[in-house]
Write a protein that binds this DNA or RNA. Structure first.
Lengths: 337, 337
DNA sequence: CCGGCGGTTTGCATCGTTGTACGATCACCC
DNA sequence: GGGTGATCGTACAACGATGCAAACCGCCGG
């Protein structure tokens, strides 16, 4: 079986505690002893038993990341960045999928599964204000995405409202007046969908364009198929529009596909604008104009925030909210003014 | 702090071992006692300390999944399925990214990080035959992707050669004769790239079409940008072709984008065929004809195989190789004959 | 020559849990 | 009412590692 401190100690002819000291970099070990121990470690291929170490130290060296689905490119790319940042800090990452489901999100926060980790980065989607109490957990928690809850917790996000407003203003500035949106979700009270819708409305108002709810298409999950379905619904309604703002790139790409199938030209007949700046946005035909939310910064910052809490042992510092910078990446699907 | 068995025992007025018996479903516990204990557990919100449990039992209840990058949709979708299957079995999944890098793949196999898990599902990309010895590890290991190594380990994959041959035959049957391929990688000796190339060549030969290496474009990582770059290279070579077979969908989509930018019509001038059947393949413009490799089946089977080893405690059964069924999904980018 | 003092090394208790062995209890039957 | 067996509860010893504090060593100064 796997070698233990005792085995190494026997081989090196020292006490197991000395081996522990070597492994942990305790400074007062004679160089000769240290070398002897290290040789024994190498010979036996000793690797510390992390369960025992966790039990003793109370730390697991792992963090959990909970996202709706890895099948959504946004979250897959985000997860990639989180894992990378965690690895640089010597932590491993355990990934959970909630499906964006309210009950599963709440259940996860209580789950014994999380005892395997030191903290959680959660990207909630289904939870509502009334569920905020579930965020009262014993471990460090960092929320991603819009501040959905009135609850004092660490939180990394972007300014969805300003970004959506800027995106809409971009379309208005390019001369579009009938701007449809895809991705509305009345179940969310304060989530991204709601805020992006609000940013859209603010921009319309500021631009003197009337809000028309027939231009608003709902989508609870933001898959490509949902964008396609929503666009078909918009076309079926028979209401005219000259631009579409998808609340994420996947929705926008699904919608763009349906537009083109329907014989409409992008961007001549309908401009399309997305949100996320996924890798694939640059390679779509036509390439997709989109909002870049600073995803890598968000991931890195979330891990750093969690680490900060871990180091301080929790309660001390007041909860922080950190905002990523966004930019609008102009491409073919919606050329600038 | 978190409640322990002792705390629960104190509250319930029994010994801590009785609590343990209740938690572990030991049958000989009086219903009244059981209920008393369960009330105490609920009141204190007791959750077992998994580090202690692991230490005692030798099992962690976690598995590791190592893929090149989550940024590659294929692996993101695969990871999603693996996590789902593991969760159904009561396991959590720890995700590692290797970047498809040979050294990192080998290092991971030795890494103490893996002591946190009971087994590993590895999707190797950079390792070579000469590195096969690194697969001699003390924990259950399941390999995904083509059998790159002459080493007896469990292994779940698809028949890359037959699938690539079928895909090429599909293009030949539709009348294409000058078929370019994107994704070749001479660093891989027996990986997917190599096998898909071989399947391509076999199909050409069987169809009486001469192999022309000027139609072969290299790509080591299979990102969209790599497909775009490879297609530019092909166009620069000035050699004529009427079809492109991308060794995965991402490459094919990147290539398709460049083709259209260059004013070539898909599929009229050039047919495009991919491999993976990603979600986005169905929504590209035009929609992408592709090989569906049975990804969900692969993920599910990999987890089941690992579980099987875990239950049997390793060495017993001979290593198995399991092959997923593939199908060719005909769409617009390469209509059938 | 001895006490004291860095610098090294070691022994012991402990983290929370489970398995084993045994002691206690109870119902039941004669 | 006492014996018996089945059933339940409890003490104790691990699992492998770390933190604390004591023991040990050689050396110096008094």
């Amino acid at each position: 079986m796997a070698a233990t401190l005792h085995d190494v100690a026997n081989l090196a002819g020292v006490s197991f505690k000395t081996v522990s000291n070597v492994v942990n970099g305790y400074p007062h070990v004679r160089p000769a002893t240290r070398e002897k121990v290290e040789r024994a470690i190498a010979e036996l291929g000793y690797k510390p038993n992390l369960s025992a170490r966790s039990l003793r130290s109370g730390r697991t060296g792992a963090i959990a990341l909970a996202v709706p689905e890895l099948n959504l490119s946004y979250f897959a790319e985000l997860a990639g960045f989180v894992i990378e940042a965690a690895e640089r800090a010597g932590l491993v990452t355990l990934v959970e999928q909630t499906g964006g489901d309210r009950a599963r999100e709440i259940a996860l926060l209580q789950s014994p599964r999380l005892r395997r980790t030191d903290g959680l980065i959660l990207s909630p989607l289904g939870m509502r204000q009334e569920d905020a109490g579930a965020l009262d957990v014993a471990f460090p928690l960092v929320l991603l995405g819009e501040r959905t809850f009135d609850w004092p917790s660490d939180h990394v996000t972007m300014d969805n409202l300003r970004a959506a407003r800027a995106a809409t203003e971009y379309l208005l500035a390019s001369g579009r007046r009938r701007i449809a949106v895809i991705g509305e979700n009345e179940d969310e009270v304060m989530g991204s969908a709601r805020l992006r819708l609000r940013g859209y409305r603010e921009a319309l108002e500021a631009g003197g364009v009337e809000y028309d709810e027939r231009l608003v298409a709902r989508a609870t999950l933001w898959h490509r198929a949902d964008g396609a379905r929503a666009m078909r619904e918009l076309l079926d309604r028979g209401v005219a529009f000259d631009a579409v703002f998808g609340f994420n790139d996947t929705l926008a790409l699904g919608a763009m596909r349906v537009l083109q199938e329907a014989g409409l030209r992008v961007p001549e007949d309908v401009a399309v604008l997305g949100f996320d700046n996924l890798d694939e946005a640059a390679y779509a035909i036509p390439s997709l104009t989109t909002v870049d939310p600073g995803r890598e910064w968000i991931a890195r910052t979330a891990v750093e925030t969690l680490l900060e809490r871990l180091r301080r042992g929790g309660g001390e510092a007041p909860p922080s909210t950190k905002l990523a910078d966004f930019t609008i990446v102009a491409r073919e699907s919606a050329p600038g003014a």
